[in-house]
């Protein structure tokens, strides 16, 4: 079973003592703040966790795998995540 937003809401309820409705808003707020910054092209660095970065990808020649026809892919922006040393250490047993 994967951890979902509902579990994060639960964890925030436990530490904050706030109501469920408030914690739902808070978790949504955290996510929308991070998303908005990334959408604005800004990197988001959470020390001890990792860094969400925007990377610019150049236009490139691609291929439609179904038809095999050539096409040009436009330049685009993608989100990448670089884990911090601490997070890496934690997933390897601390």
């Amino acid at each position: 079973m994967a951890l979902t937003k509902a579990d994060l809401v639960e964890a925030v309820m436990q530490t904050s003592g706030l109501t469920k409705a408030q914690c739902v808003d808070i978790v949504d707020s955290i996510l929308s703040i991070v998303k908005d910054r990334l959408a604005a092209g800004e990197d988001v660095l959470i020390s001890g966790f990792g860094k969400f970065q925007i990377q610019d990808k150049d236009a490139r020649r691609g291929r439609n795998p179904a038809t095999g026809s050539d096409l040009m892919l436009r330049p685009r922006k993608v989100v990448t995540f670089k884990y911090s040393g601490k997070l890496k250490k934690m997933v390897n047993g601390g």
Binding site: A11, V12, T15, S16, I30, G48, M90
Partner: peptide, 13 residues
């Protein structure tokens, strides 16, 4: 709350 948020994700992973 911010610490709890990222700590929960870290602990899960």
């Amino acid at each position: 709350i911010v610490d709890t948020f990222f700590q929960t994700i870290t602990d899960t992973l």
